[in-house]
Design a protein around this nucleic acid. Sequence first.
RNA 1: GCCGAGGUGGCGGAAUGGUAUACGCGCAGGACUUAAAAUCCUGUGGUCCAACUGGAUCGUGAGGGUUCGAGUCCCUCCCUCGGCACCA
Length: 841
Amino acid sequence: MKQKTPKYDHRLIEEKWQKRWVEEKIFSPDIKNSKNPFYNLWMFPYPSAEGLHAGHAFASTGSDIYGRFMRMKGKDVFQPIGYDSFGIHSENYALKIGEHPQAMLARTTKHYEEQLKKMGHGYDWTRTVTTSNPGYYRWTQWLFVQLFKAGLAYQKEAEVNFCPSCKTVIADEQVIAGKCERCNSDVQKKSLKQWFFRITDYADRLLEGHNKIKWSERVVVAQKNWIGKSKGALIKFPLVGFDFSIEVFTTRPDTLFGVTFMVVSPSYAKKNLIRFLSEGKKKELDEYIKRIQNIKEDEGKEKTGFDSGLKVKNPADGKEVPLFVSNYVLDDYGTGAVMGVPAHDVRDFDFAKKHSLEIVPVIEADWDFEKGAYDGEGKITNSGSWNGKQYPADFDFILEDIEKKGWGKQSFSYHLRDWLISRQRYWGPPIPMIYCPQCAKKGVSYLTIEGGSLRGDQSDWDSSGWWPVPEEELPVLLPELSDWKPEGSGKGPLENHPEFYETRCPHCGALAKRETDVSDTFLDSSWYFLRYPSVGIDSVPFDADITQKWLPVDLYFGGAEHSVLHLMYARFITMVLYDLKLIDFDEPFPFFFAHGLMIKDGAKMSKSRGNVVNPDSYIEKFGADTLRLYLMFMGPMDGYPDFRDEGIEGMNRFVRRLWRLLNSGLVALDENLSREIRIKMHQTIKKVTEDIERFSYNTAIAQIMVFVNFLESLQGQAFKGGKTKVWEEAIRTLTLLLAPFAPHLAEEIWQNRFAEKGNYKSVHFEAWPSFNPKLVVEEKIRIPVQVNGKLRSVIEVDSDKAGNRAFVVSLARQDVKVAKWITKEPKKIVFVAGKLLNFVV
RNA sequence: GCCGAGGUGGCGGAAUGGUAUACGCGCAGGACUUAAAAUCCUGUGGUCCAACUGGAUCGUGAGGGUUCGAGUCCCUCCCUCGGCACCA
């Protein structure tokens, strides 16, 4: 019976099932009653004006495939989607196209939704999150308040990063090689009073947590580098002639006897040493500060400085050394003061040369600057001497010795800075704080009245006059403004709107002022994963029972570019909520997979290159299933796969062949072929299953192709009197294996061919096929035979005899091609059962 | 400079220490066609010898090493990409 293959009309098929899936809400799990929850999350996008590009399609498909796989494995998969629509990225787009962000987003989020639906992803469209909605940011503000009450949000004057193009301050993490993460402009340093989150309090927790999460290694490494913990000593150098000591941090206390000078940063001198300086030196300091302020970033590398005229005493050997002021000492790392050991530090060496300072080597091993005696990990790698004696075996000995002698103490230093949360912009949640001048006068604040657990160093933090907006008054609505563009005055656009900021003090009722800065967009995204399962519940940000059931996230899928931004902030916020006993886990993403970056025709996609791939046209032409398969087949998920038009055409050929095969009639087979097909089928199930589990989608698809090629090759071999059962099973299995990759095609075939009629049950809820380990073994095994490690022949052995050494050896020796090379009796015969045979002659 | 990941055909890429180049793209030849598209079939790392069915040899950035056997492990070096960087 020859049957005509229906036309493969991808548009018809895909639209039909996408509509059906949404109508039947098949991807909306029962959040409250789920017995087997699996939270499958992809980093939500911010809806830019240009829409979803192929990089999004690549990443989201990778996430969707895993979700569909887990669903077929019997999990209640919750796969939500939303929009990171509040914040500087959206606002910058709005500025660029000259439209109000609110109006722009109404359009772009709709566009995104359409695009995402066209990809055929299994999102729960009944529970979306839009960070710019008051119903959401009400809780973002609530989160700020919780941090403030816990003593983790504070305001202080500090040297901060300012982006002149975005006209706002930004966090340390948002400065990439001196440039703004958003707009790539050169970042400036400014001294401003800003709100910070005390993330540095969590530095050690953030590091320790890495041990219990399963993340892509490179992301963990990036976070560790960023946190930048180093072990060393704080050593006190008394100022000669005054009752004052300068503390330095060093990771090389072993070089203490090589100190020939000391250097402090200009602001350290200004802050701490001004009273000890002579009039002349005071003047010199002011002039020096002025001079270096005018030096541009790239010229700043040159080490300048001057002698303060003061001397400090080395606690170890009592030597008095000169004290310098120089720009090469960082103000915000360590203590702002450095002990100068020119013999063992290149920077100190440069400085010493310039100022003709003494250079005293104390460790032979690294005198030539090639190797450090201390490897930075707490171990001494080379021999040397400490205080005249032979080097002890480990670094801790030196630290203990220093402590014992009272010269200083063991300490740690971190690269991580507190998270600067204020933004002088419009499009974000207003920071929910009120400043009352009356209370400030009295030195009263929320924290002094209500207590709250004060944390960290409070020396430069005065909370006087600050009150959080009472929680029942949240959200502090962002008013609709026409003059919403940033001015760069150091204040946000809300500063021009008394009707916004004029308010009453929640404590004393006096006239007070609201904070007019908004918060960093990364605060919006630091907790969105907590909101999704509780969408629809408006009394709390996240329902306790639901959160306990669904969180932490089972699989988080996203880009590695967020290593020290979103991923670190989200971990921090989660730890805080855990400490506040609001959740019962302290790592939000125990399992995170960092996908790679798609490129096009060998180059990075960018607007300037004009090679940004828009998925829409490919979906239009080939269908989402072809696009999905191609995106996943291009290369490894964590690599840099190259999108090529010829490549997707090739995949389209495969999809059309697949369509023909899946629609073709049954082929009757004899027993031998039936057995062969069954073996291939079980091998394919095994390979595809294991490959999906390790995100090796490209090889999973390759295996499906192998199976399809094999089935096609048998199509002409119908056997009279044979059976069709195995063939049907093969087609059925193939349809199931395809379901995560090509969901529409699989659904169409499944419903037409295998599903029970009448009651709609999607292929995506059918059980994932399992393989029988006994059936993946071939009947005959090909064993390569080597002589001296060189392949000489391949012999075919019945699988039950493939482990029999004597049998395989004798068979191999009968092989002419092998015998030819065995000129004398082998010295040794290496046999790997069922795998390989090697004669060593 | 430090840390991390890599370097495999013309290209994207496969390979628990065990037949290197699966799968796909591209290319070449052929079939079908008046022709083209589409589709299908065959071939496709280099060199040499055969010229039917083969066979030898070299070959995974370079050079060493371990091993019966190395793309895979170890050492030295080169290059590419990513992160951090005047971090004491």
